[in-house]
Lab assay of single mutants.
Amino acid sequence: GKELVLALYDYQEKSPREVTMKKGDILTLLNSTNKDWWKVEVNDRQGFVPAAYVKKLDP
């Protein structure tokens, strides 16, 4: 199944490769191989958020 992450903080995108999220958002995790930036999908948009700003949810 899909892996989900919880947004721990608000994040405002600073480049087109990033996405904005609000604290409490549930996002689909697409790629977590980079320790600093994780690729997520939110509202049909894909992009990166700081890994420290999200937490993996237990399945």
Score class of each variant (00 low, 15 high):
residue 1 G to F: 05
residue 1 G to D: 15
residue 2 K to Q: 08
residue 2 K to F: 06
residue 3 E to A: 05
residue 3 E to H: 09
residue 3 E to K: 08
residue 3 E to C: 08
residue 3 E to G: 05
residue 4 L to Q: 10
residue 4 L to T: 14
residue 4 L to W: 04
residue 4 L to V: 10
residue 5 V to I: 07
residue 7 A to Q: 00
residue 7 A to W: 00
residue 7 A to T: 04
residue 8 L to P: 01
residue 8 L to E: 12
residue 8 L to C: 06
residue 9 Y to H: 06
residue 10 D to S: 08
residue 11 Y to N: 01
residue 11 Y to T: 01
residue 11 Y to W: 13
residue 12 Q to T: 08
residue 12 Q to C: 09
residue 12 Q to R: 11
residue 13 E to G: 11
residue 13 E to I: 04
residue 13 E to V: 06
residue 13 E to N: 06
residue 14 K to V: 07
residue 15 S to Y: 07
residue 15 S to M: 09
residue 15 S to T: 12
residue 15 S to D: 07
residue 16 P to R: 11
residue 16 P to E: 08
residue 16 P to C: 10
residue 16 P to W: 04
residue 16 P to A: 12
residue 16 P to V: 07
residue 17 R to L: 09
residue 17 R to D: 13
residue 18 E to S: 05
residue 18 E to N: 04
residue 18 E to T: 06
residue 18 E to G: 11
residue 19 V to W: 03
residue 19 V to Q: 03
residue 19 V to K: 01
residue 19 V to H: 04
residue 19 V to P: 02
residue 19 V to A: 06
residue 19 V to G: 02
residue 20 T to Q: 05
residue 20 T to M: 04
residue 21 M to S: 01
residue 21 M to A: 03
residue 21 M to N: 00
residue 22 K to H: 11
residue 23 K to I: 03
residue 23 K to W: 01
residue 24 G to M: 03
residue 24 G to L: 01
residue 24 G to K: 01
residue 25 D to T: 11
residue 25 D to H: 06
residue 26 I to H: 15
residue 26 I to D: 02
residue 27 L to Q: 01
residue 27 L to A: 08
residue 27 L to H: 03
residue 27 L to S: 03
residue 28 T to P: 13
residue 28 T to D: 08
residue 29 L to C: 12
residue 29 L to M: 04
residue 29 L to S: 03
residue 29 L to K: 02
residue 30 L to F: 04
residue 30 L to A: 05
residue 30 L to P: 01
residue 30 L to N: 04
residue 30 L to W: 06
residue 30 L to R: 07
residue 31 N to H: 14
residue 31 N to Q: 15
residue 31 N to A: 13
residue 32 S to W: 07
residue 32 S to D: 10
residue 32 S to I: 07
residue 33 T to M: 08
residue 33 T to I: 07
residue 34 N to I: 05
residue 35 K to C: 07
residue 35 K to A: 12
residue 35 K to S: 12
residue 35 K to N: 13
residue 36 D to F: 14
residue 36 D to C: 12
residue 36 D to E: 13
residue 36 D to T: 13
residue 37 W to D: 02
residue 37 W to F: 08
residue 37 W to S: 04
residue 37 W to E: 10
residue 38 W to Q: 03
residue 39 K to R: 13
residue 39 K to T: 11
residue 39 K to L: 09
residue 39 K to S: 09
residue 40 V to M: 01
residue 40 V to L: 03
residue 41 E to P: 00
residue 41 E to S: 13
residue 42 V to D: 05
residue 42 V to F: 13
residue 43 N to W: 07
residue 43 N to Q: 15
residue 44 D to M: 12
residue 44 D to H: 12
residue 45 R to W: 03
residue 45 R to F: 05
residue 45 R to G: 06
residue 45 R to I: 06
residue 45 R to L: 09
residue 46 Q to V: 15
residue 46 Q to L: 08
residue 46 Q to E: 14
residue 46 Q to F: 05
residue 46 Q to I: 07
residue 47 G to E: 02
residue 47 G to H: 02
residue 47 G to K: 03
residue 48 F to R: 06
residue 48 F to K: 05
residue 49 V to C: 02
residue 50 P to Q: 01
residue 51 A to N: 03
residue 51 A to P: 08
residue 52 A to D: 12
residue 52 A to E: 14
residue 53 Y to C: 13
residue 54 V to Y: 00
residue 54 V to W: 00
residue 54 V to Q: 01
residue 55 K to F: 03
residue 55 K to A: 08
residue 56 K to N: 06
residue 56 K to W: 06
residue 56 K to C: 11
residue 57 L to K: 04
residue 57 L to C: 13
residue 57 L to W: 12
residue 58 D to Q: 09
residue 59 P to S: 14
residue 59 P to W: 04
